[in-house]
Amino acid sequence: MVDLNHSGLTEYSFERLDERAAMEWMQTHWSKSFVFSTVYAALVFGGQHYMKPRPRMKLRRPLILWSLSLAVFSIIGAIRTGSYMLQVLSVGGFRRSVCDQSFYNGPVTKFWAYAFVLSKAPELGDTAFVVLRKQKLLFLHWYHHITVLLYSWYSYKDMVAGGGWFMTMNYGVHALMYSYYAARAAGLPVPRPLAVLITSAQIGQMATGLTVSGLVYRWMQHGDCPSRLHNIFWAALMYLSYLLLFSNFFYQTYLRRRGDAKTTKVE
């Protein structure tokens, strides 16, 4: 295990988490993620039915505050976990960054790892804005929310290898994504290439997650990359499905429509 207690990373008072209590709570209550997911699905599709004969809600200010709060949370999380991961990479190398479990109980990331998994429950609230504003609800949207919640709570309790990469990447992508949403909700001019960049980052995140899952499986055979076979299976399946869905979204949104527009113009 990499010792980063003297790495120069300052642990702030709010980051002083009792990781044992946090781990025990998750080991006892992780299955409640299924309850949250079931209630979420019922509210989403029930809400769509409720809103069908009713006018869409604007919700501009609540959406700005919601997106901005998640953007700030994700930016700070990305900085804190990213700094820690860089330290692991510089001290122990790439393999250690994948296999080391110190991310779950390190002086900085123990708080941000727990905050990450807990945040997947309130993040379900994203969909309320889609439903109440009567926007198109993509399968990718609600499938992603449910599966991330289930897998995050399921994996945290076992401190599986690869978690540092999974969580840090997610913080980074969400920092960009929610900042973009906040700017759009506030009516600020946002260049289209930024949206392309965010989707590209999401695709890169899924490809990296799939690669890390494969490396965990490979290195687990040598006994220094703690995980479980069924966890690796679900992680790989999840990231593969995300990779396919986000790639299809990229094609349908940025490539196919552009091609259709060109064809229409010619005709």
Rank of each mutant, 00 (worst) to 15 (best):
I75D: 06
V91C: 07
S200K: 00
S37H: 01
R80S: 06
A235C: 14
L70M: 12
E123C: 11
K52N: 11
S97L: 04
L243Q: 10
T38L: 14
A115R: 02
R56M: 08
T253K: 03
L244F: 10
S241D: 11
P189K: 07
T81C: 13
Y114S: 14
Y178T: 04
M51Y: 05
F45G: 08
S13C: 01
V39Q: 06
I146A: 13
L197G: 05
A182Q: 04
A22L: 10
T81S: 12
A175R: 02
V117Y: 12
S37I: 07
K134I: 08
K52Q: 13
Y251A: 11
F111H: 10
P189R: 07
R257W: 00
L59A: 11
K110C: 09
K157E: 04
K120W: 02
A42D: 05
G8D: 03
G187P: 13
A128L: 15
L132H: 01
N248D: 15
L4Y: 05
V212W: 00
M238E: 10
W153K: 00
Q221M: 13
Y12T: 03
K32H: 15
K52R: 13
D126L: 06
V130H: 05
P122E: 10
I146C: 13
V72T: 11
T10V: 15
I203G: 08
G162Y: 03
Q101I: 12
H49R: 07
F73P: 11
P226A: 07
A207M: 09
S213M: 01
T208R: 00
V190R: 00
L244C: 08
S213W: 00
M159I: 11
L124R: 09
A42F: 12
S213A: 14
M169H: 00
W66N: 04
T208E: 02
E123D: 09
I75Y: 03
V266D: 10
R80C: 08
S155C: 12
L9C: 04
V35P: 02
A235H: 07
Q27T: 11
T147Q: 07
L59N: 11
L89Y: 05
I64D: 06
F111M: 14
Y217D: 04
Y114R: 04
F246W: 15
L197Q: 03
H49W: 13
L197K: 02
S37G: 10
F139L: 09
F250K: 04
A195Q: 04
A42I: 14
Q48Y: 03
R54G: 06
I79R: 10
R256Q: 15
P122S: 05
F246L: 12
E19A: 13
G209D: 01
S155I: 01
G204R: 00
Y40C: 10
L210R: 06
M238C: 09
Y12N: 02
V2S: 09
C99H: 03
H174W: 05
P62Y: 06
A207K: 00
W142T: 07
A41S: 12
L149R: 02
N170M: 08
A42T: 12
Q202E: 01
S152L: 07
G204C: 12
D158F: 13
V196N: 03
K265N: 12
R56E: 14
R228S: 15
V39M: 10
N105H: 15
W165S: 09
T199I: 12
Q27E: 14
V117S: 06
M26Y: 07
E15Q: 15
A185N: 05
H29N: 15
V148W: 10
R80P: 08
H174T: 05
V173I: 14
G204L: 09
